[in-house]
Simulated assay, not measured.
Amino acid sequence: MKRRAIRYLVVCSSLLLGLLFIWTVFSLFIVRKVVIISVTNELNGLNILNNKNLLLLDVNKMASLLLSQNKIYSNLTIRKKLPDILVIESKLRVPVAFLINKGRRIFIDQEGIYIPDLNMDREIYTQIEVPNLIIYNLDNIDWRVLKAVKLAVAASKNSLTIDKIILDEPSGLYHLFLTGGEEVISSQEQDPYLIAASLQIIISRFRIEGKIISQIKFQYDKPIVVLKSGEKITSL
């Protein structure tokens, strides 16, 4: 009887010591400090890290959760630094244009993601105006706005800079105003990258010929070039 009692006490003591060890280990690895490496200290949603255990933390899942609450970042890299430190390195989205719609000014990256204003210089980005289109949901970009963004990106890849793009919704046309003073008109159905490539060829050709372009119309079967003199030329 005495031996059984001793054995029982030993088992209970072992269980208690085991539980105490587990509790000590888990409490040792609770996240107590978060180090953010970023050009901005803004990072929403850090409260989801409260009482998280570093050993059990899925960094990829956590990065996805934080990204969903922080649209200004394109990527978050999370590293564990034992025993209780989490290091988060962020990469900001790079805007290519800013949208003006019903008095609002919103930056957009090349994927069409709306970015909160971080006091960036609007003068160096393409301005997109959609006066007849109301943007209600910033989480899902309108396809017409995305097409305008692609026009800006495609032009940049062809060494062209667009100052402003205006969407004329009733007619389904984009009016592009280049830094060189040319106005370009294209339809919503046309491929932005084909437009940009053709545009680069046309502008280069007419500059070599010493002709000043006023307007290029791509909405027809063949582009029509209107010179400053008023002359109209069908470009092949």
Rank of each mutant, 00 (worst) to 15 (best):
G103R: 08
N50M: 08
K61S: 15
I106Q: 12
P131W: 15
K71C: 03
L55V: 12
L82Y: 15
R93G: 04
L49N: 06
L86D: 05
E111I: 00
K102A: 01
R104M: 06
K52P: 01
L86I: 08
F98K: 11
T126L: 08
P83G: 09
M62P: 03
N53C: 10
V87C: 02
P116W: 07
L76R: 06
E129I: 07
E111A: 10
Q110D: 08
Y114I: 04
K71S: 13
R79C: 00
R93Q: 06
L82T: 13
E89V: 08
M62G: 02
K52N: 06
N60K: 15
L133W: 11
I108T: 06
T77F: 09
L67A: 01
K61T: 10
R122C: 00
N53E: 02
K81H: 13
N60R: 14
L55S: 08
M62R: 00
E123K: 15
N53D: 06
E89R: 14
R93I: 00
R122A: 05
K80A: 05
L65V: 01
F107Y: 11
L133I: 04
I48R: 11
L86N: 02
R79W: 01
G103W: 12
S74G: 12
L56D: 07
K61M: 09
K102P: 00
G45Q: 04
V94D: 09
I48M: 11
L76C: 02
G45W: 07
R105E: 13
I100L: 15
E129M: 13
I108N: 06
L66Q: 04
D121A: 05
V96S: 15
L57C: 00
G45C: 06
E129C: 10
I85T: 15
R105Y: 15
Y73W: 05
L49Q: 05
I48D: 03
N132W: 05
Q110A: 07
L43M: 09
L55F: 12
N51Y: 04
N44D: 05
L86R: 07
I113P: 01
R104P: 00
L92W: 08
